[in-house]
Write a protein that binds this DNA or RNA. Structure first.
Length: 363
DNA sequence: AAGTCGGGGAC
DNA sequence: GTCCCAGACTT
């Protein structure tokens, strides 16, 4: 991933299209827009990290009413700051906000170090993008942002492959963001980029018909807007193992157990399950003494949404079993009851109907 | 590079 | 239910 960005538009053309769209269709009346002090922009940017605008607005209003400036925030107890953060999530943001306020007051004389992006980004809770957003929005000075909205828009516009969480992909997106960022109207441009991603170039249903870049967007040309940005790679599903007891009586019936009413396979009928062979044997010793184990059948895998279950069927024979209770039943594979069965259990039982126990096939 | 932090919206 | 959101920080 060493190739340089290949912008689809010259910076001036990009900026003209974007700002023209923003002037007519952008958001111009968010609470932190009408009085863009560094403090208000800062608080809004922190609250907006990984949090949608509609959620933030009431928190922002309450916060500003109680802490109208950085001095009042620095003077507050952390408990009160976190009280106002309750329900917003990511509470480290609130703690860092409070810490940073004290840094501003104690080490910077009550003024944000806006002249230095590095110093801004060194403050607790302020990273590269947030520092750029604060400087651009409150000072109108050239600074680059790369939030989720910008990543989405730019990765679509250029069909940037790869997950933005990867360093090389993020680096390329920063380069593109840098390429397009103007030297004027920084507050509007920054807001426009976020508005584009939030209202038009949305994750699920982008409105390409209204997009000022739909004639040059590479993802749109391919009809693959939804493929960009690429999703975080799915982690390999964890695998759990289990043994299922295939206990058959002299008539060839199989013992089933009903699952708990809620949870996995809730209310369905399944085979008795055990994590370990020893546990299975112990259960037999108690409930079916004198039963005999046959050779385990070949394990097979059942896939759930969040894990794989490797099942080892363990056939056994028993002469009789007393008082099996309400949550157990004998099931005749050749004359099946009308009950719910877990899918792999159904497959196992179906295989029993046409084959004998001594010539076990896979399910 | 991967894990953690969180409540809520969209689907 | 899953996936993601105006990311930053820790390990």
């Amino acid at each position: 991933m060493t190739d340089t960005p290949t912008p689809v538009l010259a910076p001036t053309a990009f900026q003209r299209r974007l700002l023209e769209w923003f002037d007519e269709h952008g958001r111009h009346d968010l609470p932190w827009q009408f009085w863009r002090t560094p403090y208000r922009v800062w608080v809004s940017e922190i609250m907006l990290q990984q949090t949608q605008v509609a959620t933030v607005i009431p928190y922002f209003e309450r916060f500003m009413a109680r802490f109208p400036d950085v001095q009042s925030l620095a003077a507050a107890e952390q408990d009160e700051v976190l009280h106002l953060w309750t329900g917003l999530g990511y509470y480290a943001r609130g703690r860092n906000l409070h810490k940073a306020a004290r840094v501003v007051v104690d080490e910077h004389g009550g003024e944000f170090p806006l002249h230095s992006l590095e110093e801004m980004a060194a403050m607790p809770g302020i990273g590269r993008s947030t520092a750029g957003a604060i400087v651009a929005q409150s000072q109108g000075r050239r600074a680059v942002i790369l939030d989720g909205n910008v990543k989405r828009s730019l990765s679509r516009l250029h069909a940037v492959p790869g997950w933005p969480g990867r360093v090389a992909v993020e680096h390329r997106l920063w380069e593109l963001a840098e390429h397009y960022t103007p030297h004027e109207r920084l507050a509007d441009y920054t807001q426009a980029m976020m508005d584009l991603g939030a209202t038009l170039c949305r994750r699920g249903t982008p409105e390409c018909g209204r997009c000022p870049f739909n004639d040059v967007c590479l993802a749109h040309a391919r009809g693959e807007e939804r493929r960009f940005p690429e999703s975080k790679p799915r982690k390999a599903l964890p695998t759990r193992t289990t043994r299922m007891l295939l206990l058959r009586d002299a008539r060839g019936r199989v013992l089933l157990e009903q699952r708990p009413a809620s949870g996995l396979w809730g209310g369905l009928w399944s085979l008795p399950q055990f994590d370990e062979a020893a546990a299975l044997q112990a259960w037999l010793d108690v409930h079916a003494p004198g039963s005999r184990l046959d050779a385990p059948r070949a394990p097979f895998t059942h896939v759930f949404s969040h894990f794989r279950l490797e099942i080892t069927p363990q056939p056994a024979r028993v002469e009789r079993l007393d008082s099996i209770g309400e949550t157990r039943r004998w099931y005749d594979p050749d004359n099946p009851d009308a009950v719910g069965l877990a899918a792999p259990v159904k497959a196992l039982l179906a295989s029993l109907a046409t084959f004998t126990l001594d010539t076990p096939p896979g399910p």
